[in-house]
Structures are given as C-alpha cells and as structure tokens.
C-alpha cells in the first residue's frame, strides 16, 4: 500500500500564502513514521506528479474565498469540489486536475482531503505570517494532526483515531 502523503502548497515568499508550508514544518516534528510530508510551491498539473499512485493525501493550502474571516480553517473533501469549473487564465485548479485524472485513468487518491486556511490576498513580497494567521496556525496544525492520526492503520495515533476510509471521502464531522 502506498504511504499516505501530506502535501503542503504555497509560496513562503508571499507571506500568508506560505501557511500550509509552515504547518507542514510543524507537523514534521512528531510525524507518524508511515506518513510522508512534502512541500511544493506549485499547483495545477504538478499535483498529478505528487498524487499519482497515492491512496491517501491531505493537502494543506491557503485560500482566498472572501467568504470567511482570515484565519478560518476550512476542511474539504472530493465531494465538495465542483466539477466543470471554468478555466483559469493560468493553470488548472484541483477540480480540473481531479477530473483529468479520472478521465485519463490515472490512479489518484480515493481519500483526498484539503485543509485550507482563509487568508488575505498577499500583495507584497516577504516572508513571515500575519498575526491573525500565526495565531490560527496551531489550530490548523491540530486539525491536520487529527486527520493524519485517523489514517494510522493500527489506530495507534490516539483515542481520536478512526479506521481509514474504505473508499471515497467522509464528511468533516466523521473525522
């Protein structure tokens, strides 16, 4: 069985855009040995390279939806992505990538979750997180930890651990 992957997306030269990367660095400190953690500054089709052949993937990302206050942590599963999204002028988003993988028969994670933190759009080049996002980071990391523990096949991650999903995804409440 392939190793579960935590994949952090973001650019740490763009302030809060790097919140997923910051979370990944904290997660590495006490990671179960059977889980991989990777960081990437790209999105779009590069996600194919990262996720192909994996069965369980947790994406950590920053998001600007404008619908939540900065620092809000959103948890999404495959069912939450709209299919038939409109093209971006730049590159394919996750729903496009999922649709593409499905069409082309590329083995893709059945259990794919996303933890994303709402941030303000970064306007200035620079490292470091804003105070709001920094304050929300521990909660973000805890949520990720709980999801990772639930992946542990032996359930050794602690009392909150749950068996891995047999297929598809589960709603946030079930984790």
């Amino acid at each position: 069985m392939s190793r579960p992957l935590v994949l952090a997306l973001g650019n740490d030269l763009l302030g809060d855009d790097g919140v997923g990367l910051a979370a990944a660095r904290l997660l590495r400190e006490d990671l179960p040995p059977h889980v991989d953690v990777e960081e990437t500054p790209t999105g779009g089709l590069d996600l194919l390279d990262w996720m192909e052949g994996r069965e369980r993937v947790l994406l950590l990302d920053a998001v600007v939806s404008g619908r939540h206050p900065p620092g809000t942590v959103l948890e999404l599963t495959r069912g939450d992505f709209k299919t038939g999204s409109l093209p971006s002028p730049h590159y394919a988003g996750l729903p496009d990538v999922l649709a593409l993988a499905e069409r082309l028969g590329i083995p893709f994670p059945r259990d794919l979750r996303v933890l994303a933190m709402e941030v303000e759009p970064p306007r200035e080049l620079g490292t470091g997180l804003s105070p709001v996002v920094r304050a929300a980071l521990p909660g973000f990391v805890d949520r990720a930890r709980r999801l990772i523990r639930a992946w542990d096949p032996a359930g050794a991650g602690g009392p909150r651990a749950a068996p891995p999903a047999p297929r598809g995804t589960r709603s946030p409440g079930e984790t």
Binding site: L9, N11, G44, D61, A92, G93, P121
Partner: peptide
C-alpha cells in the same frame, strides 16, 4: 485577455479551483 495568458500574481493555489 486570456489570449495573453496574463500573469497576475504569484501564489500557487489549487483552490477553490474555479473561476466565479
């Protein structure tokens, strides 16, 4: 404007992945 493939910013995001 899509024909120019304009570059707007430099973040790297997969989400929301739609273009409302």
């Amino acid at each position: 404007f899509r024909a120019y493939d304009p570059c707007h910013g430099c973040g790297t995001h997969a989400l929301p992945g739609e273009m409302p």
